[in-house]
Design a protein around this nucleic acid. Structure first.
Length: 260
DNA sequence: AAGATTGTTTTCAT
DNA sequence: AATGAAAACAATCT
């Protein structure tokens, strides 16, 4: 489930394999009728140019250049960007492919079609237009405490709200709360400065930890909630029992024995 | 076969 | 009035 760390892992693949190569063609993949992708005209606008830089804000990935158009990519729940060469097999569920000079390609794949790719001119304007809050890895402790601590609803819902702060989704909000010992349905306004500080630190540790593995979950420590997201499982932290409950319409896995 | 996942939109409530 | 909760929606896979 692509959240900030997964988006960042995808951005790195683009950064490492798809920059500074002339774009020869931008091709649609299969079963594309329900996927939002750049128009033929917009696709044509990339031909002859190059991607020279990438950016990321929250769960959104961008690639472009100083003068040309950019792509804005949202991975939805199952999308990914892959770099491959022309003689490699085309990845499954490829919806859009940038063909570079030589054999190199960049493919956007999206099995469940919840994601999209748009052509945009200005990343900063796009971020504003989407109403995104500050990136979760960039937001400072004070701003974090202000935003989350003033939220009257469930703290989990606040963490996930992309308008308050961009990048955290269901998985890593649970992991952050689990580590901090705060219940997902605790009210933001009930958290004191200390707990908000702890929460901010835990969020950074969780997101940073996943980033360090390039979002390879197997490489994460065994006592993380990610490996124990099942109702009734023993809690590896305190010996309690992991439970699932709906919070803000989402599945919140947590340990009621050590999260209050 | 129902449930899970994403964000958006709409409706209702505090 | 404004914030937020909850539900519906989209598509597909397990």
């Amino acid at each position: 489930m692509p959240e900030l760390p997964e988006a960042e892992a995808n951005r790195r693949r683009v950064e490492d394999g798809a920059l500074n190569r002339t774009i020869e063609d931008v091709r649609l993949g299969r079963d594309v009728e329900h996927v939002e992708l750049p128009s033929a005209k917009a696709r044509q606008g990339f031909a002859g140019g190059r991607f020279t830089m990438t950016r990321r804000h929250g769960k959104y990935i961008f690639a472009g250049s100083r003068s040309g158009p950019w792509i804005a990519v949202h991975l939805g729940m199952s999308g990914s960007l892959r770099v491959h060469d022309g003689d490699d097999t085309v990845p499954d569920h490829t919806r859009l492919t940038f063909v570079f000079e030589g054999e190199r390609r960049l493919s956007y794949r999206c099995p469940r079609k919840f994601g999209w790719v748009r052509a945009i001119d200005d990343v900063d304007a796009f971020v504003v237009q989407q109403g995104l809050g500050p990136d979760a890895m960039e937001i400072g402790g004070d701003a974090f405490a202000d935003t989350i601590g003033s939220s009257r609803g469930a703290v989990k819902s606040a963490l996930i709200d992309q308008k308050k702060m961009a990048g955290v989704g269901n998985l890593w909000s649970d992991e952050t709360l689990y580590r901090t010992g705060i219940a997902p349905d605790a009210k933001g306004t009930d958290l004191g400065g200390n707990r908000l500080g702890d929460l901010h630190g835990a969020m950074r540790d969780v997101l940073g930890g996943v980033l360090d593995t390039d979002a390879q979950y197997d490489a994460l420590p065994g006592d993380w909630l990610i490996h124990n997201r099942e109702d009734g499982t023993d809690c590896p932290r305190c010996g309690g029992t992991i439970r699932m409950k709906k919070v803000g319409g989402r599945s919140a896995y947590h340990c009621p024995d050590h999260q209050h």
